[in-house]
């Protein structure tokens, strides 16, 4: 393959990288800190850094590169706010469940959201990347820059803590 065509400075490569990764970065930072504005800015900043260094970063490494930058940008700077997650409206729209059931669902949503907010930031991020963004453990490991084993551990602990919290133990 021609190296020039495959360069991040190439508009198409850049677009491709942006389209396939920016939403995950946005969500990732949002899960971490619960601040949409910061999440959006992080995406912008990470990709500007990538563009500035487009000659030095190969497309294969670009993904890990932007995640690392995103990770470093707000490290230790902001205190986590509450993560507000919408419950997918599609699941409610098609349901013709009883009001009792819907109420129960709503209550469960609230409980889950509270429990999620109470989780340590790294467990919450891992859990939500897996559940909402359907990221495999291996992928999350790349994003977080840790081993797959560590991600499994976080996942396990996250589930355990969530259940304990929701069942009120």
């Amino acid at each position: 393959m021609d190296t020039k065509e495959n360069n991040v400075c190439n508009e198409q490569v850049y677009n491709m990288l942006f389209n396939s990764n920016s939403k995950t970065i946005f969500n990732y930072i949002y899960y971490k800190y619960g601040n949409e504005e910061k999440a959006y800015d992080t995406v912008q900043e990470a990709f500007i850094k990538l563009w500035e260094n487009c000659t030095k970063v190969t497309p294969e490494k670009a993904k890990a590169y932007v995640y690392t930058i995103a990770n470093n940008l707000y490290l230790n700077i902001i205190k986590a706010e509450k993560v507000r997650l919408k419950y997918a409206s599609k699941s409610l729209a098609i349901s013709n469940e009883s009001p009792e059931f819907l109420l129960e669902e709503k209550q469960f949503h609230e409980k889950l959201e509270n429990a999620l907010n109470a989780l340590p930031e790294n467990q919450r991020t891992t859990f939500l990347l897996n559940r909402i963004d359907s990221k495999k453990y291996a992928e999350i490991a790349i994003i977080e820059g840790v081993s797959i084993k560590a991600i499994e551990k976080r996942m396990h602990l996250a589930l355990k803590t969530l259940r304990e919290k929701i069942d009120g133990i």
Binding site: Y30, L85, K86, Y87, A88
Partner: peptide, 10 residues
Amino acid sequence: FSSKLEAPTY
């Protein structure tokens, strides 16, 4: 339930 959650619009 968590797989039906949605992050803010992006």
